[in-house]
Every structure is written in C-alpha cells, then in structure tokens.
Amino acid sequence: MTYDPTGHLLLTPIDKDAPARVRRLRELGLGERPEPAFDAFAHRLADVTGVPFSMVNFIDGNRQFFAGLHTPEGAHPVAAPATATAAGAVGRFMARDHGYCPHVVVRRKALVLEDVRDYPRFAGNPVVDEIGIRSYMGAPLMDRTGVALGTICVVDTDVRPWGRAGLETIKAMAAELMEQINRRETACSDLL
C-alpha cells in the first residue's frame, strides 16, 4: 500500500463546534429560511466585489443553508434540493462537504482563493466541476459568544486577483452583517 500525502487534503475538516453552532443558530432563529434582508446583503456584497455569486451561509452539522443568496439567475427557490443542477444553477442548500465555507467556519478565519486550482486541498472540491467555481473569498460570521455561525462568501467562475483589498472588504462586510444580527438579537431580547 502506497501512502498518498495529499489524500487527506480534500476532506471537509472535522467540526467540533457544530453542536454549539446549531444551538446558537436556533437561539437566533437563523439558518432555516431565506430572509429578504440577507438576500439584499448578498446582492450588495456581489455589487461591492463585482462577482456573479454571493451568499450569507449558515452551516449546521450536515448542510449549508444560504439564507442570503445572489446569483445571475435571480430568483432562488427555497425548496432547491441540491448544490447545482445540470446547468450549474445554485440553490439554497448545499452539502456540508461541498464548497469552502466549512473550512472558513472551522478555521475561524477568512479564506481567499484567487484560483482554487492552485491549491491541491481545494482544487478537487465538487463545486469546481459542478458549478465551475474558479475563485472564492469568504469570512466567518463570529457572534458575540465566540461561535462561528457561518460565513459570507463570494465566488466567481473566473480567476480573481482579490489581493489584500478583497480580504479587507470581505472581513469588513462580515463584521457589518454581524452587527445587524447582534442588533436583531438585542431587539428580540428587549421584547421579552
């Protein structure tokens, strides 16, 4: 038997924080349904970064849910069952082992991939072939209790030279969205 040092690189990282994240998402009422405010945020994120796809993504132990979604196709059905259709359309749900957001959540740090094919760990991800993803940039959504709830991310079917400016933009926008979520939590607790 030959040892393949790259074989483990394609695996989705072990997520020890998933139970705490699921509890926190339930407390906040996030990750179960699309929300117009998150769709609007994803649309603005796409405009700011100039990409065709952007998401506000909440991740539980088994799947990813795009509570905010911007794609070139426009409308986004809630019942979309899979990552992609034969035409490469993106739906609201994605398996946990697809894409790069689970890596961002486990790492708890932003991730910038100007060309995913340059990184053996990420080049073999199913989204490369199914959707044609060539570049990715995402940042974690860290709540006030220290739990990574999910991510905001942008993807493109072309190589993108994101650079430091892109990294700073995605991190600033993640912080902005978390401020909105924190204000919403505070408003809800004030009503109790």
Score class of each variant (00 low, 15 high):
135 S>P: 08
95 A>Q: 11
9 L>N: 08
97 D>I: 04
102 P>S: 02
36 P>Y: 03
124 G>T: 14
84 A>W: 10
124 G>A: 15
26 R>S: 11
164 R>F: 03
113 L>D: 03
30 L>D: 10
18 A>T: 04
144 R>Y: 10
166 G>F: 02
41 F>N: 02
69 L>Q: 06
69 L>H: 08
192 L>H: 15
18 A>I: 06
50 G>W: 04
157 T>H: 14
91 G>D: 00
41 F>R: 02
152 I>K: 06
121 R>C: 12
156 D>G: 07
167 L>V: 11
98 H>C: 07
97 D>P: 01
68 G>F: 02
123 A>I: 08
79 A>Q: 15
87 A>E: 15
184 R>M: 07
38 F>H: 09
75 A>C: 07
66 F>G: 05
73 E>V: 07
111 L>W: 05
54 S>Q: 10
81 P>V: 06
120 P>Y: 08
141 L>A: 00
54 S>E: 10
75 A>D: 10
88 G>D: 07
118 D>I: 11
115 D>E: 12
6 T>Y: 14
109 K>D: 08
83 T>G: 15
40 A>F: 06
137 M>K: 00
77 P>Q: 08
159 V>E: 00
131 I>P: 10
19 P>F: 00
166 G>H: 04
115 D>H: 13
119 Y>T: 13
44 R>K: 11
187 A>D: 15
56 V>M: 01
22 V>W: 03
78 V>E: 15
65 F>A: 07
34 P>G: 10
72 P>T: 14
29 G>I: 03
57 N>L: 00
19 P>Y: 07
67 A>Q: 13
171 K>I: 06
60 D>G: 04
100 Y>W: 04
1 M>A: 13
171 K>Y: 01
134 R>H: 11
98 H>V: 00
108 R>W: 00
71 T>Q: 06
93 F>R: 14
81 P>Q: 06
157 T>E: 15
